[in-house]
Amino acid sequence: MNNNDIERYNPSQRTNHWIVAILFVLAALSGLALFHPALFGLSGLFGGGTWTRILHPFIGVAMFVFFLWLAIRFAGHNRIEARDRQWLRQINDVVYNREEKLPEVGRYNAGQKVLFWVLILSMLVLLLSGIVIWREYFSSFFGIVSLRWASLLHAIAAFVLIVSIIVHIYAAIWIKGSMGSMLYGTVSRAWARKHHPAWYREITERK
């Protein structure tokens, strides 16, 4: 870090992100415990199967609330534009690090924007289906067909969310210099110029 770096996330945004991240880990571990017998052992982390069943929905709802707050903050930066579609068409150049061939990127690249919207969708499905299968308070209001659909959709959305977060975490490991933006809030000027040139121009011109 040096004092010439640019702030990408303020302390409040970072706190919000990490609260969601921690809740995601807890929700994913407790959910996976009930997802497949091979992972039932994870329920031990939460005090056994019954505690896992009791805690999982509360963790999930908390994750959704904090995620919603984060999503409202970032939604404006995640509108898909024409250059994003071009970026996605050149996904091979992305994967093979040929960044110079890609269209100019703003605050977020198309991959980050797609991730954003996939997260929103899967979080919404998880919340709604999760309420239906929350036996203790809500399941009695729904018919058996709704329950079966909700159980299936909950598992599918959880799978999509977990794979998306694996991609999200790997991207932060892959693109060196990114992690700092969520840890201490800043990125170097060279990082911004290389990966997000349009955003870099925008913030330097503003000053």
Partner: peptide, 18 residues
């Protein structure tokens, strides 16, 4: 992810520019 990292590798920024 693991094999992408070991085959294609990470992207680093040339801090000289900075």
């Amino acid at each position: 992810g693991f094999f992408h990292y070991t085959r294609v590798g990470p992207i680093r920024v040339e801090e000289e520019d900075d």
